[in-house]
């Protein structure tokens, strides 16, 4: 099975080399694609200089639009499984095969690497955990599925799921929305435990002043998604 790892990258000049080199040394059997989302630092130059496989978006689309470009690339190049990992080094490639396994065995269509199952490693700040728990509860209420780490960007998708996401993917803060739209359209979504690390350098895209907008926007999007879709069995 050929696997593509999508690494969205926005102003990750300090991290991106480490992330790609670590992935290449731990999982030499998988292909990777860095999606440079029109970074304003010298990320593009680093990617080009090191001869990495990358897409260079001419406009900044946000994480959702960037990851979706990766899904489009995966569909165009006929990959069986796509895995998304963050460009900031939080996601350890040692868990890559754990995340892929349920997809390869045909048990799930989307598998999320969750830091809250075993509660090991970096658990993020208290306020974020409250937010994540709220969204997790909301998703449980809307779909009946219990997903703990709804904002985790460490996730693997099978071929059909990838084709679906290549056509339908939210543009900003897409992770929780992707879960609801996948479940509502009859795809099987589950989690496996992973250990995450704190971001190695740079700043996260979600800062304090944005968090209220984030919660309102995501909650509204989840409810609208659910209202607009009748849950299909598969």
């Amino acid at each position: 099975m050929n696997v593509l790892v999508i690494i969205p990258c926005y102003n990750e000049a300090e991290n991106i080399c480490r992330v790609v080199e670590r992935l290449k040394s731990v999982c030499p059997d998988v292909d990777y694609l860095v999606v440079n989302d029109c970074s304003t630092d010298h990320s593009a130059a680093i990617l080009s200089k090191n001869g990495y496989n990358y897409l260079d978006l001419p406009l900044n689309l946000g994480i959702g639009g960037g990851v979706q470009s990766g899904y489009l690339y995966a569909v165009a190049n006929n990959y069986d499984i796509t895995v998304q990992i963050d460009g900031d080094g939080q996601h350890d490639p040692h868990y890559l095969h754990d995340v892929i396994r349920p997809i390869a065995e045909g048990k799930l269509d989307m598998c999320i690497g969750s830091r809250f199952i075993k509660k090991e490693g970096f658990q993020t700040s208290f306020m974020r955990r409250v937010g994540i728990r709220f969204l997790s509860g909301l998703i449980h209420l809307l779909t009946g599925e219990k997903i703990l780490d709804v904002t985790s960007g460490y996730r693997a998708c099978g071929r059909e799921m990838t084709e679906w996401f290549a056509q339908h993917y939210a543009q900003d803060y897409p992770e929780p929305e992707a879960i609801v739209s996948a479940i509502c359209n009859g795809y099987r979504v589950g989690e496996v435990p992973v250990v995450m690390e704190e971001r190695q350098a740079g700043v996260s895209s979600i800062r304090a002043f944005k968090s209220i907008y984030y919660m309102i926007k995501v909650s509204l999007a989840l409810v609208i998604h659910r209202l607009g879709a009748t849950q299909k069995g598969k």
Partner: peptide, 17 residues
């Protein structure tokens, strides 16, 4: 239009690759 620009940007990036 936002959606169309997104599509155009993505297709452009894949072609550039």
């Amino acid at each position: 239009y936002n959606d169309r620009i997104k599509r155009l940007t993505q297709t452009n990036a894949i072609l550039e690759h």
